[in-house]
Nucleic acid binder design. Sequence first.
RNA 1: UGCCGGGUGGUGUAAUGGUAACACUACUGAUUUUGGUUCAGUCAUUCAUGGUUCGAGUCCAUGCCCGGUAGCCA
Length: 574
Amino acid sequence: MSAANSTSDTNTDDSSNRHLNFIEQEIEKDFQLPKLMGKHLSTRFPPEPNGYLHIGHAKSICLNFGLAQKYHGTCNLRFDDTNPSKEEQEYVDSIQNDVHWLGFDWDGLYYASDYFDQLYQWAIDLIKVGKAFVCDLTGDQIREYRGTLTAPGKDSPYRDRSIEENLELFERMKQGQFPDGSRTLRAKIDMSAPNINLRDPVMYRVLRAHHHRTGDKWCIYPMYDWAHGQSDSIEGITHSICTLEFEDHRPLYNWFCENLGIFHPRQIEFARLNLSYTVMSKRKLLQLVKENHVRGWDDPRMPTISGLRRRGYTAESIRSFCDRIGVAKFYSTIDVTVLENSVREHLNQVANRVMVVLRPLKIVLTNYPEGKVEWMEATNNPEDAGAGSRQVPFSRELWIEREDFMEEAPKKFFRLKPGGEVRLRYAYIIKCEEIVKDPETGEITELRCIYDPDTRSGSGPAAERKVKGTIHWVSAQEGVQAEVRLYDRLFLNEDPENAAEGGSFLDNLNPESLEVVTAHCEPALAKAVAGERFQFERLGYFCADEKDFSPQRLVFNRTVGLRDSWTKIQAKDG
RNA sequence: UGCCGGGUGGUGUAAUGGUAACACUACUGAUUUUGGUUCAGUCAUUCAUGGUUCGAGUCCAUGCCCGGUAGCCA
């Protein structure tokens, strides 16, 4: 496979060589075997185009494409489009877009539907050797005949039809002579098998639905089990990596390959990703979208790739997240903070700093000349010397963050308080002299402060005077306004599925997962571009919304807050 | 209750019969014009019982607990 960003190529090799995960161990063993000796690794990522990709898929993508990178093999993208009633072109497009955005490129782009003709031929082959039959049982009857977990099933009365009759009936199924759901083609295996997947599984069902690629050519469609392994086989996939719930299907996967006598890939299963405070099932994500609990698949609160992207996550941070969570067979739940820390770590390196006040409180510097504006030099990114600096306007009237002032402050509160001093970042030390309140409500409307003219940042030793706290600010006159969307977790509950009797995961929805505020920003932000990411100093990481941002209407999304030890101190001191 | 799979610090992941480690979290301290970052340090782990062995997280047995599985979904 070719990596979209080639820098990760060499990294992958030595960083992940320290420990092999269990799949890598199996792969390395397999390539010692005569069957694969001298061949190269081939994997695939096989999404069904019935929804948008989410962070769980990202794990699988990083695994499959990452393996191909590491072992200099190939990785295909294959759409598992065997059920046209659920699948749409919109999803096909978004999936390709998301895989690319994550930084991967596929070697082959395929569709299970590319193989419908071959699959049909193979089905005939199986009929001819007496290993498949046309069954007239209804859905309910099939379930009845299948038996239960503890009781064996019983043979379908149609199981012993002649090969000729099966061939004719199957041909007529294909030609659309039978109504939807009236007949199936089933493999003839063993109705008493302890593994239910082996109790004469359905291979084809009659289904008249318009397929996004094959149109109305087919009115019979293959089931997953009948399509997946053979698709792998056709593409020469050596290792077919899937999630744990397919473990019970492996014997069937193997049975089809063996009985068809075709190249036999090896299926290996791993545990899917679970994240705390998150739902991951496509069905539930679709429900959130359809019932308007969120604003679409790419709502920044969604765990979809497109939602995370819009939230401000970087592809790098998602890849490093997938790296650090590992791969195993143990069913585990990763704390969302691991994801949040991954993006903090990357954005800390690359995001330029700016000053923005989310909840403004006005301060007036009574000893600062009216009308005067000074331009203060501010470092763009202390983690990246190459990022340079910018000028920020300073004046007599400023906005500061409401929570950076406390009238009755506890000892450890290092910000502004009556009679106290604080450093305005990149500017002067100020002292609070007077609080102005609304006579009606008692709400603080303004602070009157004095500044110390000797303390301008960078102006020499006199300016170096130490005060306990430094806060951010925006000049009232020169600042610009922006809509800032403060996103929080979509669910209140660590395990959203854990709802009260008769309830659903929707009961755990966080009613405050989105708060919109009008913020004051330093003027540089008017020149931002959609998708650009920033650190709002002392607040968190934010990005210009990729859809709604324009120079006329500044819209920023909060990706994640900065680590906040002040809240912890407060909580501890009660 | 059949079949399949799994149990290692708070959370994840290693250790492939030979000193139980790495990351994150938590906590403590240092640095800091972001209560951010960075740095240093601390706490903390093999489901249970028995067996094999000089030596067991690893192999064997039994038990316990957890997950998946009875779509003409994937």
